[in-house]
Computed example of a mutant assay.
Amino acid sequence: MVVDCGGGTVDLTTRTLLPNNKLSEITERTGGLCGSTYIDREFARFLEKKLGFAAVDKFRRENYGQYQSLIHHFFCPRIKFEFIDEKDVFRNIDLDIERTCPALIEYINKEIRDAIEDDDWLIEIKYEDVLTMFEPVVEKILNLIRDQLASSKQRCSTMFLVGGFAESPYLVKKIRDTFVSVVPIITVPQNPITAVLSCMDLTKQQLPLAFSP
């Protein structure tokens, strides 16, 4: 099974390797709107609860470059691709609004602004906050995999996780923990973002050497 965890969608297909070194698709391709950008949306919802929907929405529309910088230079490297499901080792993360996204300040109403200003423009992001961002999206992915496994009459021996979202240690851990008793090998390529798993690639004899468990 190939689980392509992209930005917008997650796409799945299951194939079997035939004796003549060709592939045969044994299930219908499936997919869903649960890629990594939906984690970004959950982060935005977190900010909306803290700062008000109107403030974050206007900031996103009128300062899209700074909003994208907030996502790609703060949220992704510090949270989305670092988070693991280990509460004991998690350290709360401070979002410094004044430094990271100063344009956002002008859209916050006075009551919230006064409270945030008292906290030196810092928003504390806790373990439970991040878990809430991940859970609804990851659960959709797990359900897609369950459905794909159920639709096959053959046992799945190997699952490849590819695409940018496969760099998330939390997602990989959840998939492995959930399906380890069903799929013997669940592996991620060394460069999941650039992995090209076309039918031609999968038929190469070097396939087992191209991936690390």
Results as ranks from 00 to 15, higher is better:
residue 84 I to R: 11
residue 138 V to Y: 09
residue 47 L to I: 07
residue 59 F to S: 03
residue 35 G to L: 06
residue 39 I to S: 01
residue 133 M to V: 03
residue 94 D to C: 03
residue 185 I to D: 13
residue 133 M to W: 13
residue 124 E to S: 15
residue 113 R to Y: 14
residue 8 G to W: 08
residue 121 W to K: 01
residue 84 I to P: 00
residue 185 I to S: 08
residue 62 E to C: 02
residue 48 E to S: 11
residue 55 A to H: 02
residue 90 F to D: 00
residue 143 N to R: 14
residue 137 V to K: 07
residue 95 L to I: 05
residue 5 C to Q: 10
residue 213 P to A: 13
residue 212 S to M: 08
residue 147 D to A: 14
residue 122 L to S: 07
residue 50 K to V: 04
residue 20 N to S: 11
residue 204 K to H: 09
residue 74 F to T: 04
residue 153 K to Q: 10
residue 142 L to Q: 07
residue 152 S to C: 13
residue 139 E to M: 11
residue 39 I to Q: 06
residue 203 T to S: 13
residue 28 E to L: 14
residue 178 T to V: 05
residue 195 A to G: 02
residue 164 G to F: 06
residue 205 Q to G: 02
residue 128 E to A: 13
residue 212 S to N: 12
residue 194 T to P: 00
residue 16 T to L: 06
residue 23 L to H: 06
residue 204 K to P: 00
residue 152 S to V: 09
residue 68 Q to C: 04
residue 170 Y to V: 00
residue 141 I to C: 02
residue 7 G to R: 07
residue 196 V to G: 03
residue 41 R to V: 08
residue 79 I to A: 03
residue 53 F to L: 07
residue 133 M to S: 02
residue 47 L to W: 05
residue 170 Y to G: 00
residue 102 P to M: 09
residue 9 T to M: 10
residue 111 E to P: 00
residue 173 K to P: 00
residue 144 L to Y: 10
residue 207 L to C: 02
residue 129 D to C: 04
residue 178 T to A: 10
residue 188 V to W: 07
residue 113 R to V: 00
residue 157 S to G: 13
residue 106 E to N: 03
residue 155 R to D: 10
residue 40 D to R: 08
residue 156 C to R: 03
residue 45 R to Q: 10
residue 166 A to V: 06
residue 161 L to E: 05
residue 71 I to C: 06
residue 191 N to M: 12
residue 71 I to V: 15
residue 69 S to I: 03
residue 59 F to G: 02
residue 146 R to F: 03
residue 19 P to A: 13
residue 138 V to L: 12
residue 80 K to C: 06
residue 105 I to H: 05
residue 90 F to P: 00
residue 9 T to E: 12
residue 46 F to Q: 02
residue 11 D to S: 04
residue 180 V to S: 15
residue 69 S to E: 08
residue 135 E to V: 11
residue 64 Y to T: 11
residue 46 F to M: 08
residue 188 V to A: 06
